[in-house]
Amino acid sequence: MRTDTMAFSTSPDSGSAIRPYRPDDGPWVRELIDADRLPGQPHCTAQKLAAAQHGALSSAGWVIPVWPQISVLADAEDRPCGIIGYLSWTDVDTGLICWVHAREDGPALGALLGQALAALAHCPRIDAFAGASPGLLGPGGLPRTHRGATHDTLVQYGFTGLRSGRYLHRGLPAEAPPAKLVADVFPCDVPPGHRLIIREAAEPIAEAVVSAEADRTATVHWIETLPTHRRRGLGRKLLAQALALLAEQGATEVALVLDDAQQPASESQAATRLFHSFGFTHVDQLWTYQHRRPRAPRPGT
């Protein structure tokens, strides 16, 4: 994270300014992030905020180290009223707006996005809210309904939106019904939690990754059955064991992202039926965004 090269810039509100993030901004920033929290989404803690400053981005099956540049919009008393994190990869001329929070205040969002676009002016392509499963500071995409002002501001600044998945949620009973143990369970580091694997002839044929938080929220990051072993009820058995495990760990609610935007309709419908049969309900549609600029002509062309 770079915080030493950014100059102050004025914002739409008199007396406020965009400046680098400072460690003492933490409590204010965590409130801003939690103001956009969806049901079942973990609360932002000091540890999560610190990890987001020099953590990892999950994308297309890869875990990529990232060090975002973080700016805050501070009011006349120098208290953060908005925050944005963004970065760029110089080798591919691509930028990424990781997250932005400003209590859905349009002018504040515009000031922050303007700052990020200016800092990423060298990037012909800029993605926003791109990622896979729920991450440290968000659900893995922009919740279109819950964050309508952010969507509108992105569009006003030239971004094109694309549906990326659906955010689902359900409560967990204090005492979950016992589930048949069909999967081996192992701890995992990324994301911190547990991996459940069903094997046949010693080969993995179905897998889930779940995590439970101290605030009693939980996430199903991943659940998948090999295509050659589907329609045997393995996904149902695996999900039942995963939810029972999360309840045993004290979770009272669980969320997941159904990444069905690129799936065939038959697979999406089957996954929807499975999750609905377990009591998951639709909370919001997640979107990702992209902004493209014409490449500057090379000298002499």
Score class of each variant (00 low, 15 high):
residue 1 M to Q: 08
residue 1 M to C: 10
residue 3 T to S: 14
residue 10 T to C: 02
residue 12 P to T: 12
residue 17 A to Q: 07
residue 24 D to M: 12
residue 25 D to H: 13
residue 25 D to C: 05
residue 31 E to H: 14
residue 31 E to R: 15
residue 31 E to Q: 15
residue 42 P to Y: 03
residue 46 A to Y: 06
residue 49 L to M: 10
residue 49 L to S: 00
residue 55 G to H: 11
residue 55 G to W: 07
residue 58 S to A: 08
residue 61 G to E: 10
residue 61 G to Y: 09
residue 63 V to H: 14
residue 64 I to V: 11
residue 64 I to S: 10
residue 65 P to A: 13
residue 72 V to R: 07
residue 74 A to I: 02
residue 76 A to Y: 08
residue 83 I to D: 04
residue 86 Y to D: 07
residue 87 L to N: 11
residue 87 L to P: 00
residue 88 S to K: 11
residue 98 C to Y: 07
residue 101 H to A: 14
residue 101 H to V: 02
residue 104 E to S: 09
residue 112 L to A: 12
residue 116 A to G: 04
residue 117 L to F: 03
residue 118 A to K: 12
residue 119 A to W: 09
residue 123 C to Y: 04
residue 123 C to G: 04
residue 124 P to Q: 01
residue 125 R to F: 02
residue 129 F to D: 01
residue 129 F to E: 06
residue 132 A to F: 04
residue 134 P to G: 08
residue 143 P to Q: 03
residue 148 G to S: 13
residue 152 D to V: 07
residue 153 T to P: 00
residue 154 L to T: 10
residue 154 L to V: 11
residue 158 G to N: 05
residue 158 G to E: 08
residue 162 L to F: 14
residue 163 R to P: 15
residue 172 L to P: 07
residue 173 P to D: 10
residue 175 E to V: 13
residue 175 E to C: 09
residue 175 E to H: 14
residue 181 L to H: 06
residue 182 V to H: 03
residue 187 P to G: 00
residue 187 P to W: 04
residue 190 V to F: 11
residue 191 P to K: 09
residue 194 H to D: 14
residue 198 I to T: 07
residue 199 R to F: 03
residue 200 E to C: 06
residue 201 A to W: 01
residue 202 A to R: 11
residue 203 E to L: 11
residue 203 E to S: 08
residue 205 I to A: 03
residue 208 A to I: 00
residue 210 V to N: 02
residue 210 V to G: 01
residue 212 A to K: 04
residue 214 A to G: 08
residue 217 T to P: 05
residue 221 H to S: 01
residue 226 L to R: 14
residue 227 P to L: 01
residue 228 T to N: 11
residue 231 R to Q: 13
residue 232 R to H: 09
residue 233 G to H: 02
residue 236 R to I: 00
residue 239 L to M: 02
residue 239 L to N: 02
residue 239 L to T: 00
residue 241 Q to G: 06
residue 243 L to N: 02
residue 245 L to F: 14
residue 248 E to S: 03
residue 249 Q to P: 12
residue 251 A to Q: 03
residue 258 L to F: 10
residue 258 L to G: 10
residue 262 Q to N: 14
residue 262 Q to M: 10
residue 264 P to F: 09
residue 271 A to G: 09
residue 274 L to V: 03
residue 275 F to V: 12
residue 275 F to L: 11
residue 277 S to T: 05
residue 277 S to P: 12
residue 278 F to D: 06
residue 278 F to C: 01
residue 279 G to Y: 05
residue 280 F to Q: 05
residue 283 V to M: 12
residue 283 V to Y: 11
residue 285 Q to K: 12
residue 286 L to S: 05
residue 291 H to Y: 15
residue 297 P to W: 13
residue 300 G to R: 10
residue 301 T to G: 05
